[in-house]
Design a protein around this nucleic acid. Structure first.
Lengths: 229, 229
DNA sequence: AGAGCCTGCCTTACAACGTAAGGGTGGTCA
DNA sequence: TGACCACCCTTACGTTGTAAGGCAGGCTCT
């Protein structure tokens, strides 16, 4: 409508799949994944919603692509790391690097767990991880088990189910509720989580993530030694 | 509309929060969680969508309630188990029992990981789990770490990120893709997953779940012994 | 007993969403 | 020059969650 298309020359650079996906990522980073709608992405690009369909098949494909962009970012970060030395150190470093990227795109971990199962970038990530395990002396079979055991932790996030540090510091609970939860109440009042800096997941701070990760890596190493003398 | 309200007397029993939630669970079980809409639940109950709002605050609350129903089912199953004996056996048994329930409501694990963080039933489940750990000689601190380390596995499901057995049996890949994934291709062709009975998550069959679980339980026991001589 | 209210269900309506269908415009190539 | 095609737009539809309010029957209080 009366848009002479000369006032904003930088907005008029053509749409592309890349630009669409990057915009979706940016919106999700800034305002949350639930605010990413076709119209919103179009707006941000100075285009209409329907124009996006020339570059992505539909909204699902857009989300898949956005996640893939994040995983690509992970792969780029991870490719620079030293893959030599002790396998446990190498794997640990790699996973924590992936985690650092996911901390910049917190919406991505949820999407990662539901879609993009066969995303090329995700598969590539796991391929390199298997490479590290193999180099560390893992049989293919044990490496396969390792992938399953690590699960989503392999890419740097874990799925927490409830947050003992948040939403209930033991004495904030109604007495009749507290009476029903003797063990948790006792645990919480002893622990007194004084550092509720949540990261990925609810109370899943870096320390807890690494604790679980090391538990798995130690266990895997023990299995490795047991099978390959 | 000309409904004499006498033809179907059993449909006219009044709505209730319980009935609404149970209906949502039933629809999700049978047709998938994405088919659960307010109108659909209403239909199933012989009522209008808006009538549900007298029993649940909104759709989010409905989904939360549906998940809670499933977790209640878990708790009922788990409460019957023997809590004595070796802690590792007790915890393992309990988690596998929870898993068995979740296998009957596959949609629930995804919802569990996003909502219902502070659901009373979920909290109760973890309280009992902490009780088991305490009885097994865990400090509160180690029990807390254990909850984090187990993550969603504590309730019987794990989050898989990709499925090496599905969607690519190594030789079904285009050659240029396969060349990019040397480790996975080698792994898959050696393993030849002949039992692709998927359960919860993608290729996360029972064996893999138990492998990861035991890895964690073994590691936790080692930490326990190390801290309490 | 009658007035008033509360509870439970319904009707109507709307905004936001994804997207199907098709129109127009500019650049490219024969 | 004319045909084609890539690209973007307009319009419109069905589905969703839900706000607003209506209407009946049973309860309580006088």
């Amino acid at each position: 409508m009366g848009d002479v298309a000369s006032s904003r020359s930088e907005q008029r650079l053509p749409l592309s799949r890349e630009r669409v996906l990057r915009t979706a990522v940016a919106i999700a980073d800034e305002h949350g994944i639930e605010t990413v709608t076709m119209r919103r992405v179009g707006d941000e690009l100075g285009a209409e919603a329907m124009s996006l369909y020339h570059h992505v098949a539909n909204k699902d494909a857009l989300l898949d692509g956005a996640v893939d962009l994040v995983v690509r970012e992970i792969n780029e970060a991870v490719d620079e790391l030293d893959a030599g030395g002790d396998w446990q150190v190498a794997v640990r470093t790699r996973i924590l690097a992936a985690r650092a990227v996911l901390l910049r795109h917190r919406w991505a971990s949820r999407l990662l767990s539901t879609r993009a199962a066969t995303s090329p970038e995700v598969v590539r990530y796991h391929d390199r991880l298997v490479g590290l395990l193999r180099a560390g002396g893992f049989s293919f079979d044990l490496a396969h088990h390792a992938l399953h055991a690590l699960g989503s932790r392999a890419m740097g996030f874990s799925q927490e189910l409830f947050d003992p540090g948040d939403g209930g510091s033991a004495d904030s609970l109604p007495p009749e509720v507290a009476a029903e939860l003797p063990n948790l109440v006792a645990m919480l009042s002893e622990i007194a989580h004084d550092d509720p800096a949540s990261t990925l997941g609810w109370c899943d701070d870096q320390t807890e993530f690494e604790f679980g990760l090391d538990l798995l890596l130690d266990g895997l190493d023990r299995r490795r030694v047991a099978t390959t003398p």
